[in-house]
Deep mutational scan, measured.
Amino acid sequence: SASLEDVKTAVLGLLVILQTKLYTLPASHATRVYEMLVSHIQLHYKHSYTLPIASSIRLQAFDFLLLLRADSLHRLGLPNKDGVVRFSPYCVCDYMEPERGSEKKTSGPLSPPTGPPGPAPAGPAVRLGSVPYSLLFRVLLQCLKQESDWKVLKLVLGRLPESLRYKVLIFTSPCSVDQLCSALCSMLSGPKTLERLRGAPEGF
């Protein structure tokens, strides 16, 4: 439990870093931090981490990651405290083949985003970082199938509809809506759902 406290501190630090690096160059920093966060949550489900502190780590990670939004130009952003989304000039939600690297070039400044813009690109060529939603999407499927803490599952179920409104997140990387529907149906009809959940409301 003591070591998990250190892990929790590290994860919180990564969330803060991602919130900053999403809007700064090099964009590969945001890509790497995002991948680290998603990989860490995957390990929770792989090794069945069920301690309360592990659940709190997942809760905080999902609470942040499910706020990711994308505009029509595929640029990622996060809402501010007033709910207004600021889109990044440097990070996009497109999935890119590994051989192309985590970044790609664009020939010049991008068109203005639909929300308040981030800082304008400084040079004639900007390297865009790929932060594909499919990585998070796979972890969300694991959550629906394996999550043991009701608070975490409730958060994910509550945030998913709003995330799905931003269709560009889903359609720019390999996210299977069929698998999502299947996971939701299995969660509702499967007898093991109630068996594994802690803290579920009576009558769920």
Rank of each mutant, 00 (worst) to 15 (best):
A200Q: 09
L4N: 12
P124S: 10
D149K: 02
S48L: 08
S28L: 08
V177R: 01
S148P: 07
L37A: 06
R69N: 04
R86V: 10
S1M: 10
R159M: 07
Y95N: 09
Y23R: 04
N80H: 09
P89Q: 10
T20V: 13
S176Y: 07
K105G: 12
A125I: 13
A61T: 14
S176V: 06
H29A: 05
S163C: 15
P112F: 09
I57R: 00
G158E: 15
D178W: 03
T20Q: 13
P174T: 06
V33Q: 01
D178F: 03
P191Y: 13
R198W: 06
F137T: 04
S130G: 14
R159H: 09
E202L: 09
L15M: 15
K81V: 15
V152A: 00
V38A: 07
S1P: 05
I53P: 05
A125Y: 15
V92P: 03
T9I: 08
I57E: 00
D94K: 07
A70T: 05
I17E: 01
P116V: 14
G158P: 01
T193I: 13
L160P: 00
P79I: 08
L68G: 03
L67C: 14
P191E: 15
R32M: 06
Y90C: 07
V16I: 09
Q179T: 12
K105E: 15
Q146Y: 09
G101K: 09
P52Y: 02
H74M: 05
S134I: 06
V85G: 05
C185L: 09
L157W: 00
P89V: 04
G101V: 13
L78S: 07
P52W: 02
W150Q: 02
I170A: 05
A125W: 12
P116M: 14
T31G: 09
L180Y: 01
T50K: 08
E97W: 08
S39D: 14
V16W: 08
S28Q: 13
P161M: 07
T106W: 15
H40C: 01
L37P: 00
Y49P: 02
Q19N: 09
A27E: 07
S189G: 08
V156K: 00
Y23I: 03
V168H: 08
L128R: 14
Y49L: 03
R165V: 05
I41W: 00
G203C: 07
A200T: 12
Y34L: 05
D94T: 10
R75C: 06
R138W: 05
